[in-house]
Design a protein around this nucleic acid. Structure first.
Length: 262
DNA sequence: TTACGGTCAGGGGC
DNA sequence: GGCCCCTGACCGTA
């Protein structure tokens, strides 16, 4: 049923440009990273030293879909991070926790928060949200992801699903402000949940083509990298799973392009 | 159109 | 096997 291909350890063929980038590009990135990392550099090194190395990557591929999946954190690390995030993250309330779809306003069926570099904003369902400053735990998870992927991220969207009733409908992360060359890195903590990709041409009653959906289970402490062009061709969702009784926190690290017009 | 609700099919329990 | 109930997939929608 599942169409993805699992390769052997570390045989990565993704478009992760950090692994094939030119020396000049590397120098530029390192400068950027240095500027961003001026503060708390030593503290972060200590935090990073706590993380174990990830287990081998699984390559998940289909037509126009390119993902990498790995267990980033051990159970003990993931338990600790989950607990810390439960204490640190402040979720949106009131109008910010609502969404308008087909002219109706609904409460979002999960909790959301946005964190990132100073001044960044992210537009979600037509609503512009500004990033809160990184918390220590979010920063250390971001750095662990960077260490593993050699990609830098300046923003994270935090989604908290209180149980299997909380969910997220089918969508693409195709916002214009996202760097089209940067993968989206999705870290899962807490209850394992199903995650489903569907090709854009295989949706709806009059779908043009028959392409099987790709189904994954995102485990506690896992990292899913969605490489370009996945988000161009594939929608993804986190469906309701009534048997799931425990909460899950999902962090999607992104790189937002700074608006040069201003 | 990151939402929900209606409908339907399939599976499990009895 | 047949019925009921639950779950999940799919579709329509302003």
């Amino acid at each position: 049923m599942e169409k993805f291909v699992v390769r052997g350890p570390n045989k990565r063929s993704c478009t992760n440009d950090a692994l094939i980038r030119s020396p000049r590009k590397k120098v530029k990135l390192e400068e950027d990273e240095r500027l961003k990392e001026e503060e708390d550099e030593e503290d972060e090194d200590e935090a990073l030293a706590e993380f174990s190395n990830p287990v081998p990557w699984q390559k998940i591929e289909a037509e126009g879909l390119d993902c990498d999946y790995a267990q980033l954190f051990s159970k003990e690390e993931a338990d600790k991070l989950f607990k810390q995030l439960e204490e640190e993250v402040v979720y949106s309330t009131g109008e910010e926790a609502k969404v308008q779809v087909f002219g109706k306003v609904y409460n979002i069926p999960r909790k959301q928060a946005t964190y990132g570099d100073a001044g960044l904003t992210y537009t979600y369902s037509g609503v512009r949200r500004s990033a809160c400053p990184w918390t220590p735990t979010l920063k250390s998870i971001r750095d662990a992801v960077t260490k593993t992927t050699a990609q830098t991220f300046n923003f994270v969207l935090v989604n908290r699903y209180k149980d299997g009733q909380d969910h997220m409908g089918e969508h693409r992360d195709d916002e214009k402000e996202l760097d089209p060359l940067c993968p989206i890195a999705s870290v899962s903590l807490g209850a394992a949940r199903d995650f489903i990709f569907r090709h854009r041409d295989a949706r709806g009653k009059q779908s043009r083509r028959q392409i099987e959906p790709v189904r994954l289970e995102l485990a506690h402490g896992s990292l899913l990298l969605m490489n370009p062009p996945t988000n161009t061709f594939w929608y993804h969702s986190l469906p309701v799973r009534k048997k799931v009784l425990l909460p899950r926190i999902n962090l999607t690290f992104r790189r937002i392009i700074l608006d040069r017009k201003k």
